[in-house]
């Protein structure tokens, strides 16, 4: 794990972080530029995006939104036999290689 921590009340609490640059672990010690180390969140971002994106239409249109068939709203899906029973929130699948 390169870096982890908790954000609480506007403070970033970083594990292993006795100073700002000590919170990013590598196989050979702390990374020299922890605050500028680029850590794209990949599947974490996709998961958060999907959840938030679904929360808003549920807020606006009610709890039935996740069970609506997408083919009713996307013409290309309606014309394909592969999407006949795909609701807005199908069962989750495991990403091929998720972030850490």
């Amino acid at each position: 794990m390169t870096s982890y921590g908790v954000v609480c009340n506007g403070v970033n609490y970083v594990a292993g972080g006795t100073s700002a640059n000590k919170g990013c672990q590598t196989r050979y010690g702390a990374h020299a530029f922890c605050q500028d180390m680029r850590l794209p969140s990949c599947s974490t971002a996709k998961s958060a995006f999907v959840g938030l994106s679904m929360a808003r239409p549920v807020q606006d249109f009610g709890p039935g939104v996740p069970n609506l068939d997408l083919k009713g709203y996307v013409p290309e899906m309606a014309s394909s036999g592969n999407w006949r029973t795909c609701p807005a929130t199908p069962a989750p699948s495991r990403p091929r290689s998720g972030p850490r």
């Binding site: 921590g5 609480c8 403070v11 970083v14 594990a15 700002a20």
Partner: peptide, 28 residues
Amino acid sequence: RMPTKPLSALATDHPAAGLDLAAFGSGI
């Protein structure tokens, strides 16, 4: 940038929360 503190400060900043900080890094 957001202010940064060591994770250990989470317990001292919030003493009433009863935090088990070891749980955050278990197995890491």
